[in-house]
Amino acid sequence: MNATPINDAVGVLPSQAISRLIAANAITATQPIPMEQIQPASLDLRLGTVAHRVRASFLPGTATVTERLADFAMHDIALENGAVLEKGCVYLVPLMESLALPPEIDAVANAKSSTGRLDLFTRLITDQGEEFDRIDAGYTGPLWAEISPRSFSVLVRPGLRLNQIRFRQGQAMLDDDALRVLHASTRLVDGPAHIDGGLGFSVDLSLEGPVGYRAKPHTALIDLDRLNHYPVDAFWEEVHATDGHIILDPGAFYILVSREAVHVPPEYAAEMAPYLAMVGEFRVHYAGFFDPGFGNTDAGGAGSRGVLEVRCHEAPFALEHGQIVGRLVYEKMQQRPEKLYGADMNSNYQGQGLKLAKHFKL
């Protein structure tokens, strides 16, 4: 049964509203949902007990995921005792959580930060879905994760949290005029604000020492339950700039960092959006949402850099220090969350600079 409305306000639902959706059975799961799964403006999603190896990615369209799976499935892998998802393969995993959303609530999903920093391509799929990571208002049904490891093979188990979902009511995104007003009252970056279709950010290639990391092509697998465990040099090569630029190699995966320190006020949430393809032969994306309080002084952040996941496409590309490579889209929260990123949580990336995923030794 669908839940009653949270309230009449437009905005992204905060942690306390997500808790109410769970209590109203608008969000259900095969296992109880612990409090730590609820983030300031999103809900972590957990892998179920089986992974279906598929021969191609797909969207179900007018069918259910289960119906379409019969056309693409190759074999099933039980996850209970841990299983390896191999680099270059595509898997479909039913999640523990299901939805029965009210008609006024829609949702969007994204990979968690550590998932993206491992180049672990993850997207959410729903029954009758025509887009990845988008859930229509009023959706009732199961949730599935499409997982495709790109740089490293990984060991996974049930309950692992690779992606997350953000709920909202109405159109909450700030246009450029509203973004300029917000930046004037609460600085969103520590330098000049480039506002055009969102808040632009640039790459920092002026760091002393390495300016980034490049994934090695042939490595051991990564057990995703092991944190602060793996030596960096077994999986990554340091990237050093020459005269303020680096050359991106086609097909290679890089971890870089933004020049700007980012601030997300507690009454707002943000998301990194891919920049226009015309800026070059590469794609930049920050997997994961920027929660309320990210980098915010009131939440103990004092500015946090955006870690950039960069993949070059068809041709080598010279990336210059200070080049604008992406943009942040801000949304209004329906209410201030009862807990904020960093201040009220064991947040891995508050106050961060250039930083790999939490699985690697500091």
Rank of each mutant, 00 (worst) to 15 (best):
N2Q: 14
T4M: 07
D8K: 00
Q16M: 04
L21W: 00
T28I: 15
P34E: 15
D44M: 01
V50K: 05
L59K: 07
T62L: 14
D71C: 11
I77H: 13
I77C: 10
A83Q: 14
A83S: 14
V84L: 13
V84I: 06
V90Y: 02
S98Q: 12
S98H: 05
S114H: 13
L120N: 10
T126Q: 09
Y139L: 07
P158H: 08
R168L: 14
Q171C: 04
D177Y: 00
H183I: 07
T186Y: 04
D196Q: 07
G197E: 07
F201H: 09
S202Y: 00
L205M: 08
R214N: 12
P217F: 02
P217V: 11
P217K: 04
T219R: 14
T219Q: 13
D223K: 06
R226T: 06
D233M: 07
F235Y: 13
H240G: 10
A241W: 00
A241T: 03
D243K: 02
I255N: 13
R259V: 00
E260F: 00
V262H: 11
V262D: 13
H263E: 13
E267I: 00
E267P: 01
A270T: 04
E271R: 06
A277C: 09
G280P: 06
D291F: 03
E309T: 04
V310N: 08
C312L: 04
P316K: 02
Q323F: 03
Q323T: 13
L328C: 09
M333Q: 12
Q335M: 12
K339W: 08
Q352W: 00
